[in-house]
Amino acid sequence: MYTQALNTSDGDDRHVEDATRSAQFQARIDADERIEPNDWMPAAYRKTLTRQISQHAHSEIVGMLPEGNWITRAPSLRRKAALLAKVQDECGHGLYLYAAAETLGTSREEMVDAMLTGKSRYSSIFNYPTLTWADIGAIGWLVDGAAIMNQIPLCRCSYGPYARAMIRVCKEESFHQRQGFEIMLTLARGTPEQKAMAQNALDRWWWPVLMMFGPPDQASQHSDTSTKWKIKRFSNDELRQKFIDATVPQAQFLGLTIPDPGMTQDAEGHWRYSEIDWTEFKQVLAGNGPCNRDRLAARRKAHDDGAWVREAAAAYAAKRANRPVAQAAE
């Protein structure tokens, strides 16, 4: 049940976390049982999930901006409708995820405020600009492709509301990657200018997309406990490799070149990639990506400009709620 009301602040995890309870909790996880909002859970499990789900939600919402940048310039009515529907889906996914995170006891307003004030992060990939129409193809093909790799295992995550939200998200996202690939294919088979546009988009998005899977396994902070709790089922490097192995043949089909001259296929068929520039990743994460400031400014503006609308709706609801009482008192 997705109920905020049930997650009052005197939740069970405020009690002493004795070893027995923790052991029982871990036994449930090990038996592949799902944890539901009102079940006892270790405070750290709650905290980890709240952080992860809310960041995931922020990413969906901020992710509307780079693609939304091209809705008004989409080059055909078919593309325009598909892109608007796709960006709308991202918003829907943000909503499903905020709702799942709220079951852990933090309100959506608090989570959104944490994002707007820079206390909570969103995926760094959205801090890169969409310069041409081909970027819309590249985002659908690569960014959504990488997101799907990350998200499919989350459908089996130990926390019920998160897993259920992810099932819905994955179902809906299946069209996103296809529409991106279709855009790339049309460009790759189009005029020389269009093909160059597609190649340039691949050149710019490739490395940031590989960084979406997170730091290499030996440097990842959260992996151990997340794996133990079955929030995470594959390591960053495993998923990254899986994505690359799936994507290389697709690039070959498009006739585009992956911007990694050192890439080779090993005996087992895996594509071995060159060293990722983690300095760039850290800089973007620290707020120094090309669009960090623009993205936050756009979300803050929407939030601030919309405040009077939300206040009006609340004021009207309050008047309505009070009206029958006022009449009864007369």
Partner: peptide
């Protein structure tokens, strides 16, 4: 209406404006 996408006063309203635009 599509110009609103990503900038609406509430996320719920983003969904509604996009639906009408579509």
């Amino acid at each position: 209406l599509s110009e609103w996408c990503g900038h609406a006063p509430a996320m719920e309203e983003d969904m509604a404006l996009a639906n009408m635009g579509l």
